Simulated assay, not measured.
Amino acid sequence: MNTDPLQPPGARIVSGLSSAEPRERLRARHPVGILGGMGPAAGVDFVRLFLSACERCLREHGTPIVDQAFPEHWLAQIPVVDRSRALLDPNAPQPLEGMSVAIGRLVGLGARTVAVACNTAHAWQAALQREQPDVELLHIARETAAHLRASGVMSAMLLATEGTYRMALYQDAFDACGIRCVLPATRERGALMEGIYDGVKAGRLDLARARFAAVGRVLYEQHGDLPMVMACTEIPLAMPFIDEARDWRLVDPAEVLALALARRAYGLV
């Protein structure tokens, strides 16, 4: 049972946070940045996850949680063209230039590390890193795979956009860590896309919950109690609020990524 007051009741969300013994008190060391806007609600929610991760880091090190204990962080919330469409159609508008410009602005504000609050956008992570060599760009799939491996997970189900599936973002990261990646069937993939685009992105959370519930139900019946990796930042905005989700092992890669960013900000990595 999830006991985090910042998470919805019922859903079991597998956290990327450690239970290390308290050590020396923390202080913020490095400004960090967050690239949002993909979509806007996901960017704002990522800031919440980042602040929650900072609070937990502070608690682990016995540091009082006061305003001054939080690191300098900047959110670049910019309009970015659709990433899945860009991957599926080479003639569609491409997001690389806009994302690179935004990351450059974050670097100009002093950010040493940047997290991209969109799974599909990581298709351009390597190109963005080449264009912005003065900043560390975290990789959401690699961070998630490393967390799962450290937690002893050897198989996990992947819930994502069609673009994320097609570029094998998580499949490759899981394979590198020896984790079997279980993919939904075509019908369930379509339901996920409806829940993401016609549901969360369109402000229709009731539709999103219905679609995500249908997918989760099928996967749970087919594969049992394997972790469900919510590999699109829109999915955690609705799926954990489904009544049935209390029986599912939900993994939020954005939460794992937020912890990685917080640890960089405090100089723990």
Rank of each mutant, 00 (worst) to 15 (best):
I34W: 03
L35K: 02
Q7S: 13
G33S: 11
A20Y: 00
A20V: 09
G33V: 06
E21F: 01
R23A: 15
V14Y: 10
E24D: 15
E21L: 14
G16D: 06
G33L: 12
P9H: 07
P9D: 09
R12I: 04
G10Y: 12
L17Y: 07
S19N: 10
P5F: 11
P31C: 12
S19C: 06
E24G: 13
I13K: 02
A20C: 03
G16A: 08
S18R: 14
S15F: 03
G33D: 07
R27V: 12
G33N: 09
I34A: 00
P8V: 03
R25I: 01
E24H: 14
G10F: 09
E21P: 00
G33I: 06
V14C: 08
L26F: 06
P22I: 04
P22T: 03
R27W: 06
P9W: 10
I34G: 00
E21N: 08
G33F: 09
L35S: 01
S15R: 14
L26M: 10
L6C: 05
P22H: 05
P22K: 08
S15Y: 04
V32Q: 02
R12E: 13
A28H: 10
L6N: 14
S19F: 09
S19V: 02
H30A: 10
P31W: 14
V32C: 02
P31D: 08
L35P: 01
S19P: 00
G16I: 04
L35H: 04
G33Y: 10
R25N: 04
I13V: 14
Q7K: 14
A11M: 06
A20S: 13
P5K: 09
R27E: 15
L17D: 14
A20N: 05
L6H: 12
P22N: 04
V14K: 07
I13A: 01
E24N: 12
E21T: 05
P8G: 08
V14S: 02
P31F: 15
P9Y: 10
L6D: 15
P22V: 03
A28C: 07
P22Y: 06
E21M: 11
L26I: 12
I34Y: 03
A11S: 15
I13T: 06
P5N: 07
A11K: 07
A20I: 05
Q7T: 11
A20R: 14
L6F: 10
L35N: 00
P9I: 03
G16L: 09
A28D: 09
A11G: 07
L26H: 02
A11W: 12
L26V: 10
L26C: 03
L17T: 11
R12A: 11
P31Y: 14
P8I: 03
